[in-house]
Simulated assay, not measured.
Amino acid sequence: MTVHLGFGHAQSNAARIAGVRDGLAQAGIDNIPYGELSAPTLTSVDTQSETIGEVAMQKRVDMLGGKDHIEHVTIEPCLIVRDSTAVAEGR
């Protein structure tokens, strides 16, 4: 779910859960600032969208500048673990 949806879901469950309780865990996918404001704070995957945009723009500029070979770039997402999920026991 997006962090916007996760934020609303976390808020609606805030009275019932504090962190991970009753086996309920949730995570978002876009790591917007609201994830840090919810109760519990929302775990999210940061897709590195700002970096992706910067790299894409530079590649486009290179293409328009006549560069023949545009290198492939891999940008890894990053898991931001917050209170809405827990580390599995034994790990």
Rank of each mutant, 00 (worst) to 15 (best):
T2E: 12
I80K: 13
R16M: 11
A25E: 14
N31C: 03
L64C: 05
V55A: 00
G8M: 04
E71D: 13
I17P: 08
G90I: 06
P77S: 09
D46W: 04
S38G: 03
T2I: 07
D62I: 02
M63N: 06
A56S: 03
Y34S: 14
N13W: 04
G6N: 03
L79V: 08
S12I: 06
K67A: 05
H72S: 15
V87L: 14
A25N: 09
E36I: 08
I29W: 02
Q58M: 12
K59H: 09
L37N: 12
I17S: 08
R60G: 08
T85M: 12
V3K: 14
I70W: 07
D83E: 14
I75C: 05
S44G: 10
H4W: 01
S12G: 05
R91E: 15
V20E: 08
N13D: 05
A27S: 01
H4I: 05
E89Y: 07
D83A: 10
Q58H: 07
C78K: 14
H4S: 15
L42W: 03
S44K: 09
G66T: 02
L79P: 06
G66F: 00
G28T: 00
D62L: 02
E50I: 03
L5D: 15
R82L: 07
S49W: 06
G8K: 03
R16G: 06
E54K: 08
G65W: 02
D62E: 15
H72I: 15
A18W: 05
L5N: 14
A25F: 02
S44C: 05
S49M: 12
G90P: 04
A25S: 12
D46K: 07
D46E: 07
A27H: 00
T43A: 05
Y34Q: 15
T41G: 08
G35P: 04
V81F: 11
Q26M: 14
G65R: 05
P77D: 04
V87M: 13
M63V: 04
G23E: 13
K67F: 01
G23Q: 14
A14E: 07
I70R: 11
C78A: 11
Q58K: 12
Y34A: 12
T43Y: 01
E50M: 12
V3C: 13
G23A: 05
K67L: 03
A39E: 15
T2N: 07
G53I: 01
D83M: 06
I75L: 03
